[in-house]
Design a protein around this nucleic acid. Structure first.
Lengths: 336, 336
DNA sequence: CGGCAATGCCGGAACGATCCGGCATCCGGC
DNA sequence: GCCGGATGCCGGATCGTTCCGGCATTGCCG
């Protein structure tokens, strides 16, 4: 009784029967494997289409020992940060293009000794130095890719940009525009990126014999905290004539603070951000920033991880990520 | 040659062999099914633990005709909105607690006629009235839950809050505080929520014989657009003495605009938001807002969907979501 | 002491797709 | 006319888990 044919999803056997061929031939026809005549192939495809056949991914996974899913983890403290959202979306888009699914891995999911999700590989976005979830994921024997990862206990793929060069380019630019005492509102060195930015800033200052003017705030701080940090720095170091803003979005409040104090941003004082943000185009003045190309970064992570999973890349392959400074009025003056 | 025992993951057969029992008994012991002596159970658990046994989820899915994964979709225009991030995270946490995975479904994933990911059910967050992806997901014969969904072509679960009551409470509160001409900066009626808020505002105005003062901006607009909208409204309707801000985060710029114009927020003019935001606690003054409890909303969606998938709830079950107004200084005055 | 139920355990079968090897058939070349 | 190879198709077998039914063994009760 094929009564419930409409109820149960069609299988490859249903397709084969409808096309008058065997399982194997139907499968071969649809996958383009084996030797199948053009005629048969067309018939099978027609049958599959009319039956609305959709291969059962569990069965396929079982046979292929593969899930068709990648996991992506970002520390929960980061979830409010625009940059990571963009990164996750870039990853999702690339994954969609490659017809694979993406599962988000929260801290909770791994915290309680629970089973890790069924994935072929994992992406860690800017793993915190001491993140327990990241450690557990590292301990898993799975292909793994980090975006700006710190050195790991085992071989992992890495997508990484030349932040040192970008920070230097920005600092050189500020100097060109007349700044002699650029300050840094920094993110903490708990991530690889945070550490490298601080180091690049210190190195640049050392080369020029400039005393670093740096203040630090944790990731995910409220914007009020950044405003307070900027004020604090300005009181302690009145000579500061340029601001490098590390935390995503912090340049907005820094500009506010400076304008409150009667400084002319882009002229009297320069402001630049280390993490570009859509809002920086609309601020007054628009803010010069390093475009970290988060969408491209997310996509690159997916591609690298897929290559590693498929054996097309070494488990410890590194992929460079191009980034670029976007020059805007906040460092170019009113005439922009 | 069990040489590669270390290479290949342990299966239930390996566990059974190690414990000196059969497949079935090992499985029963681990799952707590069937009849197994305490002794045997302990032995199996020990074997599983030493072998690092982890059930193959593909095999389990195949057998159970279930994926252990739920999908969640939100329109890409919404991805920058704080509220949705919180919602997604609430959903992820609940999912983690229930030991199921969550796959994000992007527009791209379904747009190109690609196969939808293998999931047991789908959550739609505030589906746009004409979202093609939402329509395709609706067309799928899968359990589906919407957060504030519009009436659908088939039975879907709904998680929904009483926005009408909340808007009324807020408007009554503004009136109590002396406002006679409250304006609404509205989100468009393309979502269920947007439409209901507008309707509630109009109804309240009609009851009191007040001429509505409303201006609308699309979802995901830049904050500059909201500022411009507020200015525009103030020019057109100078009598406005209270502002209801719909779009997430828009109250920040509205407060700015009002203060620029020399109005005393919380005193001279009242401001309230329809979507609470962490930033509203730190603004000056803090902004009264409706707490839509997004994390609870996300968790409720997961729970409802799971109940529907498991047959514990009707496919068209409705779950109320409690929301509440958070009163702050922007409507209470400086002394507030 | 016979009958019957409970207990503990196990062997096949099934889920759906894929792959390996094999079996006809047909054709061209010598 | 026969052989070798190419072509088109198919039947098991497999992936790892779970479930249904069944088989001894034990113990209890009348």
């Amino acid at each position: 009784m094929p009564d419930r044919a409409s109820t149960r999803a069609a299988t490859i056997v249903d397709v084969a029967r409808a096309a008058g061929v065997s399982r194997t031939t139907a499968s071969d026809a649809l996958r383009g494997h084996g030797r199948v005549s053009q005629e048969t192939r067309t018939a099978v495809e027609a049958a599959a289409s009319t039956l609305g056949y959709r291969p059962n991914s569990a069965a396929r996974s079982l046979r292929a020992a593969t899930t068709g899913t990648l996991g992506i983890h970002l520390p929960e403290a980061m979830t409010r940060i625009e940059y990571y959202l963009q990164t996750v979306y870039g990853a999702l888009e690339q994954a969609a293009a490659d017809e694979i699914d993406v599962t988000l891995i929260t801290s909770r999911r791994l915290a309680g000794g629970q089973a890790p999700p069924a994935v072929d590989g994992v992406i860690l976005l800017d793993p915190l130095a001491d993140d327990p979830v990241a450690e557990r994921l590292l301990a898993l024997e799975q292909p793994l890719v980090t975006l700006e990862g710190a050195p790991a206990s085992r071989s992992v793929g890495v997508v990484s940009a030349d932040h040192e060069a970008a920070v230097r380019e920005l600092l050189d630019h500020l100097a060109d525009r007349g700044a002699v005492a650029p300050a840094l509102l920094a993110s903490p060195a708990v991530t690889d990126w945070g550490g490298r930015v601080q180091a690049a800033y210190r190195a640049w200052c050392a080369e020029r014999g400039i005393e670093p003017a740096m203040v630090e705030r944790p990731f995910g701080s409220e914007s009020g905290a950044y405003a307070a940090a900027a004020r604090e720095l300005l009181v302690a170091r009145p000579e500061v004539d340029a601001f490098l803003c590390g935390p995503d979005g912090s340049a907005i409040v820094v500009v506010d603070v400076l304008q409150d104090l009667g400084r002319e941003v882009g002229d009297d004082v320069l402001v630049a951000a280390l993490v570009d943000n859509p809002a920086y185009v609309y601020t007054d003045p628009p803010v010069t920033a390093i475009d970290l190309t988060p969408r491209a970064a997310g996509a690159a992570c997916i591609r690298l991880l897929l290559d590693i999973v498929r054996g097309d890349a070494a488990a410890d392959a590194e992929v460079p990520l191009p980034i670029a400074v976007r020059y805007r009025a906040s460092t170019l003056g009113a005439a922009g």
